[in-house]
């Protein structure tokens, strides 16, 4: 049922596109979005350290992409 919930939320997000209220952002309006710091993972090493530390200290993991982990953490 989590899956179902999720699909519903993904479909809702997809529907945002077709939503008449939302104007699609034009390429020349992407000056802010094109900045390096607007990337989803602006600092890979920071991201790596975080995922590594928290992966070894908490039960939950992942979410940003596939894979990750791979340590015999005590």
């Amino acid at each position: 049922m989590v899956l179902r919930k999720l699909l519903a939320s993904l479909i809702a997000a997809g529907a945002l596109n077709g939503c008449a209220m939302m104007q699609s952002v034009q390429p020349w309006e992407k000056d802010l979005l094109a900045k390096e710091e607007m990337q989803l993972v602006p600092d890979r090493i920071e991201e790596f350290f975080d995922s590594r530390v928290y992966f070894s200290r908490e039960a939950a993991f992942g979410g940003k992409g596939v894979g990750g982990g791979g340590c015999g953490c005590n």
Partner: peptide, 15 residues
């Protein structure tokens, strides 16, 4: 592994 996806955004000025 971490296969992150990068958002491709390109900015171009007006014409």
């Amino acid at each position: 592994m971490q296969a992150h996806v990068k958002q491709r955004v390109s900015y171009t000025p007006e014409p």
